[in-house]
């Protein structure tokens, strides 16, 4: 029996499951097709918060770090040492650390805003935001590859060496799809899908529990709302884990794509 049928049996007018429309939050300027929406506001707030926090945390650096400095250094060290240096290589990773650290902090804070009270909106749950972040990576790794080898050399370098001649066109075609379509699309969709699905799941458990507790008139459903809220709390904790993981993975993949364009051989 579905949740809606259960709720209808309880005497209410039916439970409305959350869908895509919970992500549409225009704040002002809704006259035309354009509006200033809630994710835009959250994104601006996150940029300001990151700038202020990082400026304050690095203003007075001491040899023996305090608590704030230690946290900042742990985050920076993760991006610098275990992502950038490990993957891009010790020769020219330093150029890309600012970009990767920006990605990591921006995505992490925007994801965490999905569960922080009063914000509770994962900005990356709107496809436009991860798409722009992925397009920046897309432009950068193509630019680096073309700058290094020239356009023809770059396209030729997509084919792994040592293949028999007749198979080269097919492999070239596959690699072309990988580099120009699959990579940016999966990079954007992975972040988007995780945040979108996670937020819908949280909204489903919380609004479902609220509906069963307040709007159904059967004792059984009201008791059942307690484990539903419990699941909501558990899923919130799981979401925090997923949010860290997605920020890490996005940065990791960005570094990997950049490293692929810088590498000498395929």
């Amino acid at each position: 029996m579905s949740l809606g049928m259960l709720a209808a049996a309880g005497g209410g007018e039916g439970f409305e499951a959350p869908g895509q429309d919970i992500f549409w939050w225009p704040l002002f300027g809704t006259s035309g097709a354009f509006a200033v929406t809630r994710p835009a506001l959250v994104l601006v707030i996150s940029a300001v918060v990151i700038a202020v926090v990082l400026t304050l945390a690095t203003r007075r650096l001491t040899v023996v770090p305090g608590k704030g400095q230690m946290l900042t250094e742990a985050g920076y060290g993760l991006v610098r040492n275990s992502i950038a240096r490990e993957i891009i290589g010790s020769h020219d990773f330093l150029r890309f650390v600012p970009l990767l650290f920006t990605y990591f902090t921006l995505i992490l804070l925007n994801n965490l805003f999905g569960v922080i009270p009063f914000f509770q909106y994962p900005t990356m749950g709107r496809i436009a935001f991860p798409l722009v972040l992925a397009l920046v990576v897309f432009v950068i790794y193509h630019f680096l590859g073309i700058k290094r080898r020239g356009l023809g050399g770059y396209l030729a370098s997509l084919i792994p060496p040592g293949l028999p001649g007749w198979i080269k066109p097919f492999v070239f075609f596959l690699e072309l799809i990988t580099y120009f379509i699959t990579r940016p699309v999966t990079l954007a969709l992975r972040l988007f899908g995780n945040m979108f699905a996670g937020h819908i799941l949280l909204v489903l458990f919380i609004t479902g529990g609220e509906y069963m507790l307040l709007h159904s008139h059967s004792l059984g459903l009201q008791i059942l709302s307690i484990p539903t809220f419990g699941m909501g709390v558990v899923m919130t904790l799981f979401e925090i884990l997923v949010e860290f993981l997605q920020a890490y993975i996005f940065t990791l993949l960005a570094a990997l794509y950049i490293a692929g364009s810088l590498a000498d051989e395929h």
Binding site: T186, L189, R190, F192, G193, N194, I249, L252, L253, L256
Partner: peptide
Amino acid sequence: LGFALTEALAI
């Protein structure tokens, strides 16, 4: 890395 690439299909 493998996890991210595999998960993309479900996404």
